[in-house]
Amino acid sequence: MAYKIVEKRQLVPDVHLMNIEAPDVAAAAKPGQFIILRIDEEGERIPLTIADYDVDEGFVTIIFQEMGKTTKQLAKMAAGDELQDFVGPLGKASEIEKIGTVVLVGGGVGIAPVYPQARAYREIGNKVISIIGARNESLLILEDEMNAVSDELLVATDDGSKGHHGFVTDLVKELLDGDEKIDRIVAIGPPIMMRAVAGVTDPYDVETIVSLNPIMVDGTGMCGGCRVNIGGETKFACVDGPEFNAKDVDFNLLMSRLSLYRKEEMESLETYKKGCGDDCKCQ
């Protein structure tokens, strides 16, 4: 099969948005679900959380950060190019219901999957407070989009170049200590951020949901590579998740398993760079 890239743009350095023509996937997609793509015949299957979807236009939006070989190769592709495979929607959809006030926390490229959830929570009448964060202002994505679907938008940057000087967790704690009753927190970002949010919300009686991104192959429950420990029980993130209750997640195991192929990832990237020309950005 072939899936056309209908639009591509760089949001901030190393982070790109792509709209992929996949009408069947777009028609079935819901917030919280993910897709798996494969660039070409030799490609790896990589999971990415769905950032948005347009049923009428028949495309799915993905937002990714250049990290390893596959994401660097993907970043070099342009509108009009085709992906070999694009499978989804996978995983369980977020349980989005009317509950009152919801705080949505997005860190780095994790802001992308938070966006459709914020919109969905707001559409059915929840009060949405969004907290988004990045290392610095120039790396912050989707600020306008998040603003448009939030009743209140708070920004944190590690260096203080925009909004709160510090981490998103500081803002989460402020909200929890404030007067407003918070009914649910959804946090998506790097595992270290999600672990920190889980740590902050733990003493409070507030449901906290995180979206896990372990290594997976098929995404349909077949390989078991995405095993996570949830409250002492082994779950497959691809079919039982990707969203789980933060206080039950063994983040140390998740982070350790994510580092399993670090050596191979470096090797793959090095081999890829060697194959690139002089004008290559990835050098």
Binding site: E42, G43, C223, G224, T234, L253
Partner: peptide, 28 residues
């Protein structure tokens, strides 16, 4: 769940479907 424990499904899928035995020529 330690690193290095595979289901046979995952191990074989990586090798057969994804051609991991040809890594890094194949990406998996």
């Amino acid at each position: 769940n330690l690193n290095g424990v595979y289901s046979a499904n995952e191990f074989l899928t990586r090798v057969n479907l994804m051609k991991a035995y040809r890594f890094p020529e194949s990406d998996t």
